[in-house]
Amino acid sequence: MRRLRKIMIALFLAVTGLVITGCNDANKVEAPVEPVGFHAGDECHICGMLIAEFPGPKGQAVATTEVRKFCSAAEMIGWWLQPENQNRSYELYVHDMARSDWYRPDDAHLINARDAWYVAGTGLEGAMGAVLATFADKQEARALAQRTGGHVMRFDEIDQTFLSKAAINHEDDRLSPDGH
């Protein structure tokens, strides 16, 4: 009887383990989350200022349970580069400025920030810190860089050093990606 009880307990634990393993979140595939619109009262997650008061592309980090909005692409990237944010499941979005007015970016044209082309050094007005113009198309980014003397960058070329130097030096539009 005692042996039968041990066998039953072992069998119960084995079945329970299989059920738990089958429900493991690692096996779950989440659908990508879509960007949301910006509204007049939205505040920047970093500085708390009203997002709509600044020209230029905005940024947002969207997860299944929350949305964090930023008054600029640079603010969003700076937030994303913080180590505690690297392991979170956020989709990052910025405005495609080839399809938007600089002073009123169109939320219908939000694009994946990791795939975007960034132009620094344009001299364009924007929120505090670095002003980064964002584009879905490399040729559009190059055209703005040629007109303004800026330079084209990719998402993974922008780091905290660049953003910090650009924020301290209000001549941020003249810094290269390596800070010179």
Rank of each mutant, 00 (worst) to 15 (best):
M1H: 13
R3G: 01
R3E: 11
L4M: 10
L4Q: 13
R5W: 13
I7P: 01
M8I: 15
M8G: 09
I9W: 09
V15K: 02
V15G: 00
G17T: 13
G17S: 13
T21H: 09
T21N: 06
T21G: 08
G22F: 01
C23M: 14
A26K: 11
N27C: 12
N27W: 14
V29F: 08
V29W: 01
P32H: 00
V33Q: 15
V33P: 02
E34Q: 13
P35L: 10
P35K: 06
P35D: 07
G37V: 02
G37D: 14
F38E: 06
A40I: 13
A40Y: 09
E43N: 08
C44G: 13
G48S: 10
G48P: 11
M49Y: 02
M49I: 00
A52N: 11
A52S: 15
A52R: 11
E53L: 14
P55T: 01
P55M: 02
K58R: 15
K58G: 03
Q60Y: 00
A61Y: 04
A63P: 00
A63D: 04
R68F: 07
R68K: 15
K69V: 05
K69P: 03
F70S: 11
S72M: 12
A73L: 07
A74H: 05
A74F: 02
M76R: 02
W80V: 07
Q82N: 11
Q82L: 14
N85S: 09
N87I: 03
R88D: 10
R88W: 00
E91A: 15
L92E: 10
V94L: 10
V94Q: 11
D96A: 02
S100C: 11
D101R: 07
D101L: 05
Y103G: 08
Y103S: 04
D107Q: 03
A108L: 08
H109Y: 15
I111A: 06
R114A: 13
V119M: 02
A120L: 11
G121R: 03
G121D: 10
G123A: 07
A127H: 06
M128A: 08
M128C: 04
G129C: 08
A130L: 15
A130N: 06
A130P: 05
V131N: 07
A133F: 03
T134I: 04
F135L: 06
F135E: 10
K138Y: 06
Q139M: 09
E140A: 15
R142E: 15
L144A: 07
A145G: 14
Q146E: 15
Q146F: 00
Q146D: 14
T148N: 10
G149Y: 09
G150R: 07
R154D: 06
R154L: 10
R154Y: 00
F155G: 09
D156M: 06
D156E: 14
I158H: 01
T161D: 10
T161P: 00
L163S: 02
K165E: 12
K165Q: 13
A166T: 13
A167G: 01
I168K: 08
N169R: 09
N169S: 13
N169H: 06
E171F: 04
D172C: 12
D173Q: 08
R174L: 14
R174D: 08
R174F: 07
L175I: 09
L175Q: 05
L175H: 11
S176V: 01
P177V: 15
G179S: 12
G179E: 05
H180K: 12
H180E: 12
